[in-house]
Amino acid sequence: MLLSKSCEYGLRASFYLATLKKEGYVSIGEISDKLNISFAYLTKIFQKLTQANLMTSLRGPKGGVALARPASQITLMDIVKAIDGDDLFTQCILGLPGCGNRKPCPLHEAWGEERARLATIFKEKTLQSIAQDLEDFDLWLVIFPD
């Protein structure tokens, strides 16, 4: 809810790639099946991640997507900015167009502090550390429909 649905899916797909032990490209079809996210939607999300140089893609029968660098070098902040932009970390909590440091809305300062704490976490955590949690806690990336 803090992040858009596209961003949540982008993170989930990135986590999935980070948990795979094998090298090489993974087809978007496979990710779509495993995570139960529509293929077309996922393709659009991966376009953004590729444009931001976080993923590489390869066309053809052996093609697909892959992390562009080791999972330990991609932070959650990288993914969030590629998909949602940096509004979350720069904008007024109420979305008021005129709010800023010179004319702060009453929540400006308190939100600024929480936002900074949040940004720190997103910059610290990498795909690698999340992938580790997913294994340790068996945190499935998907709820399979009954």
Binding site: L3, E8, E114, L118, L139
Partner: peptide, 29 residues
Amino acid sequence: VLGLPKCDAAAPCSLHNQWKPIRHSIGTM
């Protein structure tokens, strides 16, 4: 915070414990 379907207090993602106090502050605010 990451929208992980299975994350909860018993099986927390690595942001869970840091996100909770922030979420609480935002909610209170």
